[in-house]
């Protein structure tokens, strides 16, 4: 059987979650690999959420929020925008390909965009293959 990635999606309540709902209302079919966790604002995305998802076996993480300027809470999305590059760098240090974390802006009216973001991302992760979190035994880890 071909590899089917498991992806955790963190969607902001006001734009992206509503956009995903719109894709549903419009009966747009897309791949079922993303399991959505709703957060009020993409700014709520604690980096540990992403780490937690990977540690639970997620092959990738999708974060989606309102377009810049449209944040329901003024600028939470911009705070996420600034956190993501740092988080990507940390992921790389842990041996996780940074491409496994994706940030997208999806507005409440962009059901179609949500559909294509999910389909594209699933395809991309399929190519990356399953996440291999096995640690290099030659690296000595600090106790604690």
């Amino acid at each position: 059987m071909s590899f089917e990635p498991k992806i955790v999606g963190f969607l902001c309540n006001w734009c992206s979650y509503t956009g995903a709902d719109l894709a549903g209302t419009s009966r747009m079919k897309y791949l079922p690999n993303v399991r959505v966790v709703r957060i009020m604002c993409s700014g709520r995305l604690d980096p540990t959420f992403v780490m937690k998802a990977f540690s639970q076996g997620a092959d990738a993480v999708l974060v989606a929020g309102c377009h810049p300027g449209d944040c329901h809470y003024q600028n939470g999305n911009m705070k996420t925008l600034r956190r993501i590059p740092l988080l990507r760098r940390t992921l790389a240090q842990l041996g996780i390909e940074p491409e496994r974390l994706r940030l997208e802006w999806v507005s409440a009216s962009e059901g179609e965009r949500y559909q294509s973001v999910v389909n594209e991302f699933v395809e991309q992760v399929r190519k990356l293959g399953p996440l291999n979190l096995e640690l290099d035994p030659s690296v000595e880890r600090a106790a604690g």
Partner: peptide, 9 residues
């Protein structure tokens, strides 16, 4: 307003 951004910070 309960956005939660502070908690993430």
């Amino acid at each position: 307003k309960a956005c939660g951004t502070c908690a993430a910070t």
